[in-house]
Nucleic acid binder design. Sequence first.
RNA 1: GGCCCUAUCGUCUAGUCUGGUCUAGGACAUCAGAUUCUCAAUCUGGUAACACCGGUUCAAAUCCGGUUGGGGCCA
Length: 446
Amino acid sequence: MKKNKNNLKPEEIRVRFAPSPTGPLHIGGARTSLFNYLFARKNKGKFILRIEDTDKERSELKWVQEIIDELKWLSIKWDEGPDIDGQFGPYKQSQRLAIYEKYLKKLLDENKAYYCFCPEEELEAKRQEQMTRGKAPKYDGTCLKLSKEEVQKNLAEGKLSVIRFKIKNTKVKFEDLIRGKIEFDTGLLGDVVIAKDLNSPLFHFAVVVDDFEMKISHVIRGEEHLSNTPRQILIQEALGFNRPIYAHLPLMLNPDRSKLSKRHGDTALKDYHLKGYLPEALVNFMVLLGWNPGTEREIFSLSQLEKEFSIEKTQKAGAIFNIQRLDFLNGFYIREKSIEKLTELCIPYLIDAKLIEKKNTEYIISETGEEVSLKTLEKIIRAYSQRLKKLSEIVELTDFFFKDKLNYDKNLLKWSNMQDKDIKEALLLCDKILSQIDSSAGNWNI
RNA sequence: GGCCCUAUCGUCUAGUCUGGUCUAGGACAUCAGAUUCUCAAUCUGGUAACACCGGUUCAAAUCCGGUUGGGGCCA
């Protein structure tokens, strides 16, 4: 076990989850936020939700709302965020532009950043050319040679520009909580674009500024950011910020080991929510993808994890998203539910499927208008509770209770080499026997 | 392509730091059996892995070097 070298007091421990609201909350993002949340709780620190909405074209309010709703559904709570003010707000980057501008100007003034006017096509051509020569694609510094006057003239003319940060040629070393010592040669890196203009900061820059301003002590994020870290460290150093402690989580993978993507299944947390996966199951499943306590225990509630989680025991290699295991866990948590609770959870699915509808405080069967009591619904659901892997399955499992005409495959009734007439005979016999049971006397059991 | 990360059953993993207790443990999936009016659930059992090569050592899954595979970033 790697030892956690920080000697921070609990009140100095601050972590964040910083999603971009450009789409539904990704299951990988949900896991990152879980790990951050658990780390904060375990260490009695603070967990911050920050919305990275600097991309004006792609960011939408509805996605901000979905992020908030889905995290709440998982019972992940933050101490500061867009909806909970703290002393380091605002917590949406779009509301922090003045802060970025201040630091952008500072870098420009100190000659640590510069305006670049190179047209996109030209850059692309150079990149291609470098790649074919077997070199790492890297900005060649053309605009670095521009004089102050030329820059002013270009800006005055309204020539398209971006702001680049000067990457110095050095070796950046840092300690990752999960991976240990990591070293990069920044000579291979080109000068990064940190803003489109003074009011439009870009990812690498905004992250560094916000993490500093919000006094983030630990940056816990996906492995895809590992290679971005040296750049961000250089920006931090240029701005005179102190360095947070990093921890890069292994990625969630498709069955073919590529980065988790939509073509292999659902990637939005909400899809799982809608299909009837329980938050308890998702939390348990996500935490086990890359973490385990070193014991043989596999079932954990969120509150238990808040006590037992330890980031040092996180895996280094990516983990395949194994839906069968999620299904197993979900079935397990479904079976843990009381029948009253399970019925409450299943009813919306029956209503959605137009099998039943709610009328005042009662339920009626849509097809016949017949009333169906909550007690009856509970009985129906109890009969199938053990084979339910996800709540949505209740529809296909119980629809015959709510339908007059059944639609089924007659081969299901066929045993061995029965003929159709044998089946009919058996069915009639069954009907005869069953109709002799006095249902009003309560002689039916499950 | 360059750089960085990474490697134990099909999958998630324990074990690796601190070499011997590992004929490698658990869970999911799978197979068989028990139970059962069906399907499940449950219980019992089985199949199944240290990527490869070399080195260090009395002894390597564990330490070192390399190779190969996988992933990420650079767009």
